[in-house]
Amino acid sequence: MITTQNLTRRFGALTAVDSLDLHVDKGEVFGFLGPNGAGKTTTVRMLAALIAPTSGEATIAGNELGIHNRSIRRRVGVLTETPGLYRRLSAQDNLLFFARLYQIAEPMAQVERYLKLFDLWERRAAPAGSYSKGMRQKLAIARALLHEPEILFLDEPTAGLDPEAAKTVRDLIETLRSDERTIFLCTHNLDEADRLCDRVALFKTRLITTGRPQELREQMYGRRTVVHLANYRAGIENQVDLPFVKHIDVVDERLVVSLDDPEAENPALVKRLVELGADVQFVTELRVSLEDMYLDLMEANDESS
């Protein structure tokens, strides 16, 4: 759905996006993560044919960037960083204006459909300026969807929302997930990316890495099982002589065991610990949060550059 090659954008002497190579499949929810000023918005603007790359190429929904820009604009929807609504116009008039600009067949019916879907129908006649922040964000997402785009770009859809409004928006994104629609999600909220995204890219001017969140974790940290014992006996970790156990750390009197295939290997591990006289209380998988991983990767990236 989205393929880029060496996509680069400079503003004067500043390089905002440097030789970006990306590939996003149809139907994927793709998370684009990076710190402030990483170039996320610049990337979205290029991919939505709003600003031109300085160099490099991209194909978006089968259309070459720079050649078929209008066709790209017809096929993608963009939730911009700020919702951008006409405050004096009603929610309905805001949507109708865009529906007509996209020249969709039955603008009225489509607007009604999305206002109802997003629970805004009752308040359709109120000026958008009177809406709460969360409602504005929903209205802006509705606007990005009116023309049924094949690709939806969401630039920080939950930024600045309270937890409840953020959850509403996240649930909404969840319902938009379908095989037909590709979602490109820029976010700072790593928990959100972890929950919503099939794949994520870590990006700071350059691409740092891409992958499924779980795969990235395993690549970076391997898989680890945490065993809580009732009475930790010093040295017990050295007595666990199982071939598949790669390493055991003791943290707060808990065993953190590195292994490749915990589903298959945990039962034997527990059996061995019981044989050694340990009282096993809990066995859990250690999940590194995407946040920790992100911070580690960013740190490594800053050191290397």
Partner: peptide
């Protein structure tokens, strides 16, 4: 002021 230019420019308007 309403930051509506970008959504407007994202449409196929010339």
């Amino acid at each position: 002021e309403q930051t509506t230019l970008e959504p407007l420019l994202a449409t196929p308007i010339s």
